[in-house]
Design a protein around this nucleic acid. Structure first.
Lengths: 175, 175
DNA sequence: TATTTTTACTTGACAACTAAAGTAAATACG
DNA sequence: CGTATTTACTTTAGTTGTCAAGTAAAAATA
């Protein structure tokens, strides 16, 4: 079989979003565009592998990962927070995964408005079959950075995130 | 007017994707989830501002940015590479932006298969009206990191990206 | 207690994106 | 030259995602 005509983005050289950055631009803009470009490349690589190896989408994998981390079940609003997507999206994904039998909605005894979403036994098995391999991919993708470089990156991003969060919350109050 | 019921992700505290990371996980996985979480937060913040201030989507803004950087026009495949999205997506975005009068398809004198996409005068004006403010948002969002931190981040991501690219290309050959 | 506000989720419309297959021009090569 | 392959783009179908508005239960408040 020959190669596809439409290469997925991961297989392209990332001339990249970064081309947007000129020497005159602020360091922040250049940094942001590089960060975005890196993230998209890694995301695409993982998405492609998940589909090829397991026939699952990245969105569903991430959803299952959250539930696996919280075996007691999560409110849909919690899933929405954790995945950083809107509630409507969570409703849809839950519907799909429930049809596939990987998750189930349970009434929330503590709050009649909402439901708890839990992994089914099948969902748990499916996720666990994928999780280890997924982690290996990530380790490999990051292997160009030595461990102390990874630690530095982690620290810098931690600082960055605090600033971003603060601003997002401020914004919300003002508006 | 009162606040919305469905907060956009930017306005939520990012308990986050990172919750996926346990102490036992590899540094790479924790780093990746933090990177993803940061990127999504920033992206959401910018997306929201672009919509509120200018009534434009992030995808269209990025598209215009590429064309602005290349006034001579770009082949659609080039845009696809640079934005790291599939060709079909570029076709759709080009159609939309052409209808809005912001871009135009020109025949490519060098290659009859394809077309060059260029900014129209209106598109150029629109983009330039937004670009400066956009950059200020990014500068502000990154302001929690001192300049040398931003430089470090830039360097680390540069190394990371080279590794990821190499692996993506390898993958492609093997397959 | 009655009313208002917030929270939890759903719905509907639509934008953005992928994947896969199709068309046609350009290029490579035997 | 002629055939095969690659490249450039389009199309279709389907998933993922946003936004805004709607419903109903819970919490806050008067």
């Amino acid at each position: 079989m020959r190669t596809h005509k439409n290469l997925t983005p991961a297989a392209q050289i990332a001339t990249g979003l970064e081309a947007r950055a000129h020497a005159s631009d602020h360091a922040a803009l250049r940094g942001w565009l590089r960060m975005l470009s890196c993230t998209r490349q890694i995301e695409t690589a993982i998405r492609t592998r998940l589909r090829q190896r397991f026939g699952i989408t990245l969105a569903r994998f991430d959803f299952l990962a959250q539930l696996h981390r919280h075996p007691q079940g999560l409110a849909m609003s919690e899933i929405s927070n954790r995945l950083m997507v809107t509630g409507g999206n969570v409703t849809g994904l839950t519907d799909e995964l429930a049809i596939e039998g990987l998750v189930a909605r349970k009434p929330n005894p503590a709050d009649a408005r909402g439901t708890l979403v839990k992994l089914t036994a099948k969902g748990k098995r499916s996720f666990e079959a994928m999780a280890h391999e997924h982690e290996q991919w990530v380790v490999t993708l990051f292997s160009a950075l030595p461990l102390n470089g990874q630690a530095q990156l982690h620290g810098l991003l931690g600082t960055l995130r605090i600033g971003v969060e603060t601003q997002s919350l401020l914004k919300q109050d003002l508006q």
